[in-house]
Structure formats: C-alpha cells, structure tokens
Computed example of a mutant assay.
Amino acid sequence: MAKVAVIGAGSWGTALAIVLADNQHDVRLWGRREEQIKEINEQKTNKKYLPDIKLPDNITGYTNLEEAVSQVETVLLVVPTKAIRETVQQLITVLKQPVTMVHASKGIEPGSHKRISEMIEEECLQSHQLKDVVVLSGPSHAEEVSLRQPTTVTVSSKKQEASEAAQDLFMNQHFRVYTNQDLIGVEIGGALKNIIALVCGLTSGLGLGDNTKAAIMTRGLAEITRLGVKLGADPLTFAGLSGLGDLIVTCTSVHSRNWRAGHMIGKGQSLDEVLEKMGMVVEGIRTTKAAHELAQELNVEMPITAALHAVLFDGIHPRDAAEELMGRVRKHEVEEFQIY
C-alpha cells in the first residue's frame, strides 16, 4: 500500500483517486474548498464533478496541503496547466521528503512553450524534493473511469523505472496502463488533441457532418505529428493511446469539454460566453495560443490550429475559417518524418 496525494479534486483528480483507492492505496485528495472536502469526507461524494458516484472509504479529503503530502511517496498533479507552476511552488515549500510527481494534465504553456513536465522540473530546480516526473495520458474520460469502465492509458518518464513504478501504482482490471519512453510525444499528443476536438465541435456547431469530422481528425493528427517530430518525438507515438486514441475519444464524445466548447462557438456564442457557461477549464483554448506561437517559431505548418487561433483570438467567423482551410493550395497527403 502506497501513500499518494492527489492534488486537484475536480472530476479527473477524483476519478484517478478512485483508481488508486481501488488498488488499496492510502489516497489523500486535496482541494481548496472547505465545503467540497467536507462532502468528500462525510458523504463520500463529490457531486459537483461526479454525480451519483460513491467514493471509496480510503480516500480522505484535505484542504491543508502540508497535511495532504505528509509522508507520501507520490504526488499526483491534476490541476489546469495555468496552475501548474503555482501549485508546484506551494508543494516544494511544504514537502519534507523527495517524491515522484505524476501529472495528468494536458497542455502547453503560452509564452515559454514548455510542456508540463518541463514546467515542473523548472520549478523544482532549487529544491531536493523531486525524484522523478511521470506523465499519465491517454483516452480517459473521468465519468467513465469513475464507473470503472475499461480504460487504457500511457505513462512516460525520462527513467523507465519511474514509468514502471507508476504503471504498478495505477494498473488494475479496469484501468490498464502501458509505458512509453517517448515523453515528448506523450505530452504533445495529449495537449494538441484538445485543439482538434475544439475544431470538431466547432464544425458540428456549424451543421457540418461526419465527413468533415473525419477530415479534421485525420489532418489534425498529421499536424500533431508534424509538430511533435520537430520537437523530437517518435512519430509512432501518435498512432498510439496518447495520440490517435486520445484524439478519437476527445473529438467524438459528449463528455469532452473541448468538443462542447467548440460546438457552442460554432453555434455563434462568443469565447467569453462559452467560458462563463462551461464553468470549467477548457485546456484547448490556451493550448491553441501556445501551439500556434510554437508552430510559427519552428516554421511548422499547422493550418487547422492557425484557423482555430484566428476564430478564437482574431474575431474570424468560424465558417470563413472553414472555407479558407478548404481553399488551401493542393497538397500530397502522405508526409515523410525523420524517424532515425
């Protein structure tokens, strides 16, 4: 039995806490709101995020961060990308022992264009509390994980032994975990699929059908791979769980907040209206800005990302952006990537 602190008591953090609790670990679920943590401890529910789900008894809620991470071996970060740096800064002030940090967030930081593992490492440079960083990614909606429906994910780290330790920590008969040594590819695939999901939702909101969705997903995967390979990723990673798998589930499911946000934009709602109605972080919006900046910096062609950026941040009408995409100069479909 391991002691694990889950930092972030939203839907995904709670679902992963359930997985860990099912594996008989001592799970400490940290959140900011006293009312929510009281509900978790007294009623064993988290109704705002996972209605009708009963939490295992070995999940204990905390609002005190120092108490939550006391004597733990692993810290699982499940907070929005924009909160990663602040959260890690807070953690290193209260941690009294070295820990492995596993993150299950998906995004790229605008401005710095850092992946989440890079952000964590950067914030821990002057401390001795970080043993390893592991990323957990793949096609996994919290709603289905909490119902213990069959789910497969990938873990990756710079050290294979850290990946395997995380694999052992999470894996059970409902939650199958694979390892992948391509840390860059796993993080990039998980982050950029949210962009493509936004576009799939947007085209659906415009009244476009399955042909369009298939086109966006297929050419979107080409964009993700193109940028990933430029950053040093293995192109084969994008045919796996954290690439194609995550892309499929995020672009086609009613659970996908990125798809829902895109659909609302396609229906004519403004970005501000959408964010207010969603009430939750839509990672793809921030990632679109970062990926567009990075593509320009590296001279990588990402027309779908550029079109979404124009809609979100430049006031271009979604239908005009779609027509511009379809009117691009003719291309060859199959692209070559430098594998070796």
Rank of each mutant, 00 (worst) to 15 (best):
E187S: 07
D246P: 08
V274K: 10
I53F: 00
Y62V: 05
K48D: 08
G31I: 11
G205H: 06
E73A: 10
G189K: 02
V177H: 14
S270F: 14
H332S: 14
Q71H: 07
Q126I: 13
E123H: 00
G240A: 04
V6G: 01
L202N: 03
E144R: 02
G284Y: 08
L294A: 02
R286D: 09
R330S: 09
T250N: 04
D314N: 09
P235D: 11
E118F: 12
D182Y: 12
S156Q: 11
E118K: 13
Q97E: 14
V229D: 06
S127R: 04
V155D: 05
L231I: 01
T250E: 04
V229I: 14
K3G: 13
G13I: 10
R33M: 09
Q167M: 15
L244N: 02
A291S: 11
N194A: 08
T100N: 11
P303D: 01
P303S: 03
M217I: 13
G209D: 09
I84K: 01
E273C: 05
L169V: 08
V153N: 00
S157P: 02
R257K: 10
T287H: 04
L55W: 05
T45R: 15
S146W: 01
E301C: 00
M264W: 12
E297K: 10
L221V: 03
E283C: 03
E35T: 14
